[in-house]
Simulated assay, not measured.
Amino acid sequence: MTNFTLQASREWWSQRWLDLLDSYRFKKRLERARSYYRQGNVLSIEFKDAKVLAWVQGSEAEPYKVSLFLDSFSDEEWGYVIETMSHKSVFAAKLLAGEMPQKIEEVFTSNGLSLFPFTLGDVHGKCSCPDKAVPCKHIGAVYYQLGDHFSEDPFVLFQLRGRTKEQIISDLRNLRSNKNINLASERFIQEEKYTRQSSIYQHKYSIKIDEFWQYNEPLEPSLVVIIPSLNETVLDILGTIPLAKDEEDLGNSPVGDVIINYLQSVYKYISQKAVFAAMNVGE
């Protein structure tokens, strides 16, 4: 990629990388490095483990060999970083989708690390050119070229710290898979515990529907108050019952009175029987 990428179109992590180089005090050297980058003098660039290897065409016929690398994090440090990433679902989702989360630096700083180098001294560069300055214009051109690589693939930045894209995604998936298994196992244990407790409770306090309303123990006499019904019956509450014969209203006729009186005597008799039964008293 030889075309210059405008700052406004760069991804934030790519621009963050280039801002460090732009802070270099030797501006003339940076101008030459940027010119090499724009003109396509970086002939090839490849990644070998955590190191960048490149060939840069200089003023001589033979291109110069450039190597560049950062200090890699240890396996233990990467373990902490991956663990922290897995706790943040947004980070994990974006990384698994090949995107760089906006606040990815927080994952590293919370573990006492820095994804980006603090100074140019943290970027170790070596060039086969006779210029002993670091960075020389050839190293600077490769540095600018890396900004484009970071925009295309943010995992390149992680690779410079010792972890490839495949390793990070695999570690994240395994860790999140194990967590899901642990959560499912914990949920299963809780459900089993709840089931056992429910079974014990039901066995101890089992209720049979057909016996729910039964009470076979004698009642405490002092707590039982039985009040015989008053002379008033349901018939008194309902009032006169209309009795008709041949469409003639006989509700107040002697025949109606006989029927009403008979029903009232029946109700009174039944009420007395109910009181005797409740008091367990024979007739």
Rank of each mutant, 00 (worst) to 15 (best):
I260A: 11
K273L: 13
N280R: 15
L43K: 13
C129V: 04
S128C: 09
I270V: 12
I227P: 01
F26A: 10
S265T: 10
I189M: 12
L183N: 14
L219F: 15
G282D: 15
Q272R: 14
Q167I: 00
R34P: 01
G147D: 01
A184T: 13
L243D: 04
L183I: 13
G40H: 05
Y269W: 08
A97M: 07
F73I: 03
F26E: 14
E186S: 14
E31A: 12
K65W: 06
V224Y: 06
Q102F: 07
E77H: 07
F69V: 03
A97F: 03
D148I: 06
F155E: 03
A61S: 11
K126I: 03
G58R: 04
K88M: 07
K94S: 12
L243Y: 09
W78H: 04
D131T: 05
Q167K: 08
L18G: 07
F91K: 01
L160C: 05
Y64N: 03
G98L: 06
V224K: 14
N3E: 13
D75H: 00
P228H: 10
M100V: 06
S114C: 09
V107Y: 05
G147M: 00
L219R: 13
R29H: 08
S23P: 04
Y215M: 11
L68Q: 04
L175R: 13
A278G: 02
Q39W: 00
E166G: 01
W55P: 00
D131E: 11
T2S: 13
L183R: 15
D236P: 03
D210G: 03
L183E: 15
A133F: 08
E220L: 10
S74R: 05
S177Q: 14
S23R: 15
Y267I: 04
G162S: 05
Y80L: 12
K88I: 14
H87L: 13
N216C: 10
R163Y: 06
L235I: 11
D131C: 01
A93D: 15
L183C: 02
D22E: 13
L70C: 05
D22V: 00
F69L: 01
L250E: 03
S74F: 01
S110P: 05
E76W: 01
G147V: 02
L6M: 08
Y143P: 01
S74E: 06
E83W: 03
E186H: 10
P254K: 09
W12Y: 10
E283W: 12
L175D: 04
L43M: 12
K51P: 02
E192A: 10
P254W: 02
K103P: 01
I209S: 08
S35D: 14
S74P: 01
H124S: 05
K51A: 09
A33N: 03
L146S: 03
M85T: 02
P101R: 01
E232V: 09
Q102M: 06
Y267M: 07
F26M: 06
Y80E: 12
R32G: 00
Q15C: 00
M100D: 04
R25G: 07
A92S: 13
K88W: 06
E11C: 07
H149M: 11
Y262Q: 11
G162Q: 05
P242D: 07
E77D: 15
A8H: 11
H87K: 14
D19K: 11
A93C: 05
R176W: 05
I270F: 10
A33I: 06
Q7A: 10
S67Y: 04
Q7P: 09
A141H: 01
P130S: 06
Y215Q: 14
